[in-house]
Simulated scan of single mutants.
Amino acid sequence: MSLILQIETATTSCSVALARDAKVLDFKQINVRNIHAEVITLYIDELLNKSGVTYNELDAIAVSSGPGSYTGLRIGVSTAKGLCFALDKPLIAVETLEAMAYGVINSPGVAADGNMLLCPMIDARRMEVYTALFDAAGNRVRETAADIIEGNSFANYLKDHQILFFGDGAEKCKGVLSESPNALFLDDFVNSATYLTQQAAQKFADGAFEDLAYYEPYYLKDFIAGKKAL
């Protein structure tokens, strides 16, 4: 038995979900850039109040661990760790790209056959994306990486597989990758805390919790601050 609060702030979506025994009870989210700090705690309060659940009834807090937006990750992980410290609850970390893949696999509107590969993409500015490849069962085929997308990107995989590209990094790559007939795009994908559910429940059952004192988000790249125009 598990009642888990799930937090997703690694992308433009700011999303929270409540799941019991790997089933989503309710969620609240907004897909607007740079709004995470403003709404995350309000959304958590509203979600729990609407569901009739108190903070102390939670069994764990799960957070989308990255890669993704540096600021978004800091907000989500800081919120999750703060709740865990205050409530004495365990922290569960779920890699963002893996959660995105499971979100597509479990979506009723997407039919991924056994030969199709899934490619979640998170915008990392310019033509760079955070990405990985998964098969239709959610098994990792290619490790997470920060890739600059060019005409021959994924060429070895596209020869033998259809690849479904999705996420806020996929749109800007469409013009480059769509030349291959095996490149498919899911245009209406919005990341969600509901996509953490399957892995969060499994990690809770396995006791795969993070060390609160030392846990940090999976940034993948060092943060580089831009200079403000004068």
Score class of each variant (00 low, 15 high):
residue 59 D to P: 06
residue 78 S to M: 01
residue 94 V to G: 11
residue 117 L to V: 14
residue 67 P to L: 14
residue 106 N to F: 13
residue 80 A to N: 02
residue 86 A to H: 04
residue 65 S to D: 14
residue 124 A to F: 15
residue 99 A to T: 06
residue 70 Y to A: 05
residue 49 N to L: 14
residue 72 G to D: 00
residue 102 Y to T: 10
residue 69 S to Q: 00
residue 82 G to P: 05
residue 125 R to L: 10
residue 100 M to I: 05
residue 54 T to G: 15
residue 118 L to S: 11
residue 51 S to K: 08
residue 68 G to R: 04
residue 58 L to D: 14
residue 67 P to T: 04
residue 81 K to P: 00
residue 121 M to W: 15
residue 103 G to K: 04
residue 95 E to S: 14
residue 52 G to V: 03
residue 74 R to E: 05
residue 54 T to K: 11
residue 56 N to E: 12
residue 124 A to D: 06
residue 55 Y to D: 09
residue 61 I to G: 01
residue 93 A to Q: 13
residue 114 G to S: 15
residue 58 L to G: 07
residue 101 A to G: 04
residue 68 G to W: 05
residue 95 E to F: 15
residue 67 P to D: 06
residue 70 Y to Q: 01
residue 72 G to Y: 00
residue 76 G to R: 01
residue 126 R to M: 10
residue 52 G to Y: 09
residue 114 G to M: 14
residue 102 Y to I: 13
residue 91 L to T: 03
residue 51 S to A: 08
residue 72 G to H: 00
residue 60 A to G: 12
residue 64 S to E: 03
residue 108 P to A: 02
residue 98 E to Y: 10
residue 69 S to W: 01
residue 80 A to Y: 01
residue 53 V to H: 11
residue 103 G to I: 07
residue 88 D to S: 12
residue 105 I to D: 05
residue 86 A to K: 02
residue 56 N to H: 08
residue 54 T to V: 10
residue 67 P to E: 08
residue 80 A to W: 04
residue 98 E to R: 09
residue 97 L to S: 07
residue 98 E to G: 09
residue 58 L to T: 06
residue 50 K to H: 15
residue 61 I to C: 02
residue 82 G to Q: 04
residue 94 V to S: 06
residue 113 D to H: 11
residue 50 K to T: 15
residue 74 R to G: 05
residue 56 N to A: 12
residue 89 K to T: 07
residue 79 T to V: 08
residue 103 G to R: 02
residue 86 A to P: 08
residue 72 G to S: 00
residue 112 A to E: 12
residue 94 V to I: 12
residue 123 D to F: 10
residue 91 L to M: 10
residue 92 I to A: 11
residue 119 C to V: 06
residue 92 I to D: 11
residue 98 E to M: 13
residue 126 R to I: 09
residue 54 T to L: 15
residue 95 E to A: 13
residue 51 S to V: 02
residue 116 M to W: 09
residue 124 A to T: 08
residue 110 V to M: 04
residue 76 G to M: 00
residue 114 G to Q: 15
residue 120 P to G: 08
residue 126 R to K: 13
residue 112 A to H: 11
residue 125 R to G: 10
residue 122 I to W: 14
residue 86 A to G: 09
residue 53 V to E: 09
residue 73 L to N: 01
residue 81 K to D: 00
residue 90 P to A: 06
residue 96 T to N: 04
residue 91 L to G: 05
residue 66 G to I: 01
residue 126 R to T: 03
residue 77 V to E: 07
residue 92 I to V: 08
residue 66 G to D: 00
residue 68 G to A: 09
residue 106 N to I: 11
residue 115 N to E: 12
residue 81 K to V: 02
residue 70 Y to R: 03
residue 117 L to M: 14
residue 96 T to H: 03
residue 126 R to S: 07
residue 94 V to N: 12
residue 109 G to H: 12
residue 107 S to E: 14
residue 95 E to V: 06
residue 116 M to Y: 08
residue 120 P to N: 13
residue 109 G to M: 13
residue 89 K to W: 08
